[in-house]
Design a protein around this nucleic acid. Structure first.
Lengths: 358, 358
DNA sequence: CTGTTAGCGCCTTCAG
DNA sequence: CTGAAGGCGCTAACAG
């Protein structure tokens, strides 16, 4: 009743297991055509499926690609996952999925689990954290990754290198110019917006968030503007919503007290937060861009149908996933620690129009 | 340089591999505390990580849970994936991901690949197709699943049983009352909508789509309405958009020719298509619900921030994923072919308001 | 309670 | 070009 084995196939074909193996799996060259045919037919009739575990054990390589994300239902991550999945398919690998909520400790566990399965490569998406509270977690994660790499594993990271990771062998990072792009966004916004700026950021210490904040402030400075106030909140929709509520109250207070109040321009460090903030404003009866401008970052697919159309920085998320996964393939000496780079595109839309019709 | 093995740990601890195995992995009961400690320390110092492939080979069970979806970046599937992932974590399993675009042939290949990896269970999400063109693919898929089950694999399917699958052993389906819910939706809409109905459906033969169409028509009949026209299109946003364009033209023609034209009520068989249709109407200058009502199905998370708020049928997607995955755990005789059932909730929102303010 | 002995299913030298 | 033998790392019966 159990799945049939190579030995059974071999016996049925009247050959040795070795021969059967050679014809059935990608060996250097196939044995005699007559034999080959016989084996193939035997395999077919038995419904033989090679046991990948055994193959992996023998070859010590599993054809597995591990993917670590915060939350697979988040559009940012699911877009990246799609790219990774594509790349995996091209490489003839399967993807193993782990979701961690962004906790370094969980990420470490995921890496260990992947290592246990002898995944050929691991792709880590999701912002790295530099918070003191995560220090131990980061150290553990770095150590785990290090060990994984030393044992021949390949790692692809999106955005930032893992804090404290020292392995350069087989360690590959897809660099995202968050700071530069945020600066560019700030400059373009400043050109059309005379009012005050506010930044809704993630928790302090989240590298991606910090980068975007820093870049944005730099951009403002270049444009001769004073630095924006920074509000820290959760790196998700709820965080954006929360900050949005605070801002809504402030905007309303200003509108009633000061008739000539200038419109606020809100930059949320990612689209999901921007959407949350926009929802909060809307629920308080405020309208975008009439009462405030809002911009995000990432250009997740969801934005396509979000109204008002949200200004953002377009990131090729799927491509990023692809690159992260592709970078882990092939020759390990080709790019020890090398970084593939992607580029983004500031995309101004209705949510930051300066002459709002409504 | 390679990862250290159990044998190495055992040697370092001065015990036999068997003993080391007993303490390190979940054996019945741990050996003497003194020995146990010694082994644990040895493992720790060597950074030992058990080789899951070898474990799997020895125990013939892999701790792997295969998940098959059309597209991981589709909110419908990513919500289900989240539920599956949750369940897997609770069961101490890892999830293997395969995306197939819904092609039975690809699904078959995915099942074979999972079988090769000796996945303990497979969850298949995504509508089954009954189209003649997919007949061969379905047969192949059914055969593959059948074999997988016979070899002790467990299968969880969302929605419909795979066409032609005969295995009842370990075959588990999470039934979704699509027809009933669609009927209920139709009745509720009919109660507040006097105009004509149109259905934007997926390709003919997609079971989920067909069920919802049938249910909706039944509901209309119960309400004393004539059957709605059915437009077939792709089961995704693009499909909805395409149909929406056609409808937009029709609506506009009607508005100009007949001043007292009644508003159309459009039912798209899933939310993603409804969003596409809404986008098409909007791009043609039409507004919802002023110029037409629109309703969808699923209540994907994206709807939360979509405007106008879309009427739909709420399905507990994450729960569905959980159930599908959970159903594959535990005693195989408990529910041979049994069906866990979920329930949905008709949810009327602004997009189908009868007295639109604008 | 611990150690020894066999495999799990496959691949890969090494002979023939 | 084919077959035989050994081992990948671990677990599960058995002994002791």
């Amino acid at each position: 009743m159990a799945a049939s084995t190579l030995t059974e196939v071999a016996r049925l074909a009247g050959v040795s297991p070795a021969t059967a193996s050679r014809v059935l799996n990608g060996s250097a060259r196939t044995p005699g055509p007559d034999i080959a045919e016989r084996v193939r037919k035997a395999a077919e009739s038995l419904g033989y499926i090679p046991n990948a575990q055994a193959q992996g054990l023998a070859k010590s390589s599993s054809g597995l690609l591990g993917l670590i994300v915060h939350d697979i239902a988040d559009p940012y991550f699911s877009a990246i996952a799609r790219g990774v999945q594509d790349a995996a398919r091209e490489q003839g690998k399967m993807v193993l999925l782990a979701t961690t909520g962004g906790t370094p400790a969980d990420e470490r566990a995921a890496v260990a689990a992947f290592a246990a399965r002898r995944a050929d490569a691991i792709v880590i998406a999701g912002s790295r954290s530099n918070r003191p509270a995560d220090q131990d977690g980061n150290a553990g994660l770095a150590a785990e990754l290090d060990r994984y790499c030393r044992n021949g594993g390949r790692v692809g990271v999106v955005g930032h290198p893992v804090v404290g990771a020292s392995a350069s062998e087989g360690y590959h990072v897809v660099a995202v110019p968050n700071e530069e792009l945020a600066a560019e966004l700030a400059r373009e916004l400043a050109a059309n917006h005379s009012g005050e700026f506010v930044i809704i950021a993630g928790p302090e210490g989240l590298l991606t968030s910090d980068d975007r904040v820093r870049g944005f402030q730099n951009g403002l400075a270049v444009a001769g503007r004073p630095p924006a106030e920074v509000m820290h909140s959760g790196f998700d929709r709820a965080g954006g919503y929360e900050a949005g509520q605070l801002l809504a109250a402030r905007i309303k207070a200003r509108q009633t007290s000061d008739s000539a109040a200038s419109r606020l321009c809100i930059f949320a460090v990612n689209d999901v937060m921007a959407i949350g903030a926009a929802a909060a404003l809307r629920s308080e009866g405020l309208r975008i861009p009439r009462d405030a401008s809002v911009a995000g970052f990432d250009d997740i697919e969801t934005l396509r149908d979000f109204r008002p159309e949200l200004s953002t920085v377009r990131l090729p998320l799927e491509e990023i996933g692809r690159l992260a996964a592709m970078g882990t393939a092939g020759d390990s000496t080709a790019d020890g620690g090398a970084a593939a780079a992607v580029t983004g595109q500031v995309t101004l839309r209705r949510s930051t129009e300066t002459d709002p019709r409504g």
